[in-house]
Amino acid sequence: MGHAVVVEPNEKFYPPVHEAEQAARAAGAGLHDAEVDCTLPGQVAALEDDTENTVVASAGLATGVGLEEVDRHRTRLATAATTGGALLALLDGDRTSGPTSRYDEDVLVDLRERTARQHERVTAAQVTTDALRATEEQRIEAERVAAEEEARRVAEEAARQADEARRAEEAREADAARQAARAASAASAPASGGSGGSAASGGSGGSGGGSVFYQNCDAVRAAGAAPLLVGQPGYARKLDRDGDGVACE
């Protein structure tokens, strides 16, 4: 049932064949069976089902889903668009031959309208998905740049901390050297109040004794005597600004 169609002119058998065709159409049998893939109604019904699933799935995509997932849906949409486009071309083509010649005009018009609706849905979903892909590309690039910037910041911070540690270590070493110099100077200084001796004061308090006198640190350096330790000839408290026992450092 449903595989016979009216062929005009067909005056002798027209009534029973036409009646059978209409019955098949009403019952969705034969050529009108939407469950049969090789019929036009079946192809349009399959397109509707596939479009519904594909469009709904793509509509659920959101920023952050990743390019791979977006491209998977774009491929499905492209397939649906190709199928819909092929059906539209068939339904818009010559209806006097081929598969379309076996259906009434009103049936073909209905199938064509249904196919066009699905094709439009797929096309709109493609536009949306393409826009989402562009957004994903921008997001991924922004994350890459941010990661590189963070890595640069971390490296700079590590270098800064290493430099501070180096400077702190140098300061500790310099302080240890000064402490050692003061200890050595104190150990070699002559005891005060000794008998005899012709040491003459170098002028201002805290001098190192003897007749050596320097007007300032420039004079000490010019004489090649810098630095002066407390107790050494020429040492004077005025030359030791920080009072650590080492003058003209």
Score class of each variant (00 low, 15 high):
residue 28 G to E: 08
residue 57 A to G: 14
residue 228 L to N: 00
residue 138 Q to I: 03
residue 90 L to G: 01
residue 161 Q to R: 13
residue 48 E to K: 11
residue 199 A to T: 07
residue 227 P to E: 04
residue 23 A to C: 03
residue 66 G to I: 11
residue 140 I to G: 04
residue 125 A to P: 06
residue 231 G to V: 00
residue 166 R to M: 04
residue 143 E to K: 06
residue 212 V to Q: 05
residue 33 D to L: 14
residue 164 E to G: 02
residue 14 Y to Q: 14
residue 246 V to P: 00
residue 64 G to M: 04
residue 57 A to I: 14
residue 167 R to P: 01
residue 154 V to N: 05
residue 169 E to N: 14
residue 187 A to V: 00
residue 215 Q to V: 03
residue 207 S to I: 00
residue 69 E to K: 15
residue 53 N to M: 12
residue 113 E to L: 09
residue 156 E to W: 06
residue 249 E to L: 05
residue 125 A to F: 08
residue 204 S to V: 05
residue 32 H to P: 02
residue 93 G to H: 01
residue 89 A to N: 05
residue 117 R to Y: 13
residue 143 E to Q: 12
residue 126 Q to A: 09
residue 52 E to H: 14
residue 211 S to C: 01
residue 12 K to V: 10
residue 222 A to V: 01
residue 171 A to F: 10
residue 37 D to N: 09
residue 91 L to M: 04
residue 36 V to T: 15
residue 241 R to K: 10
residue 7 V to S: 11
residue 53 N to Q: 15
residue 45 A to E: 13
residue 41 P to F: 03
residue 155 A to L: 07
residue 125 A to W: 05
residue 124 A to Y: 07
residue 107 V to K: 11
residue 15 P to Q: 10
residue 148 E to G: 02
residue 75 T to I: 11
residue 233 P to W: 00
residue 47 L to V: 11
residue 128 T to L: 14
residue 96 T to D: 04
residue 16 P to K: 03
residue 233 P to N: 04
residue 91 L to C: 03
residue 236 A to Q: 09
residue 3 H to G: 12
residue 86 A to D: 10
residue 228 L to K: 01
residue 32 H to C: 15
residue 132 L to A: 08
residue 183 A to Y: 00
residue 144 R to M: 02
residue 157 E to W: 05
residue 208 G to R: 01
residue 190 P to T: 06
residue 85 G to A: 03
residue 226 A to N: 05
residue 2 G to D: 13
residue 97 S to A: 06
residue 40 L to G: 01
residue 12 K to W: 13
residue 15 P to V: 11
residue 7 V to A: 14
residue 209 G to D: 00
residue 135 T to G: 04
residue 52 E to T: 15
residue 94 D to H: 01
residue 222 A to M: 00
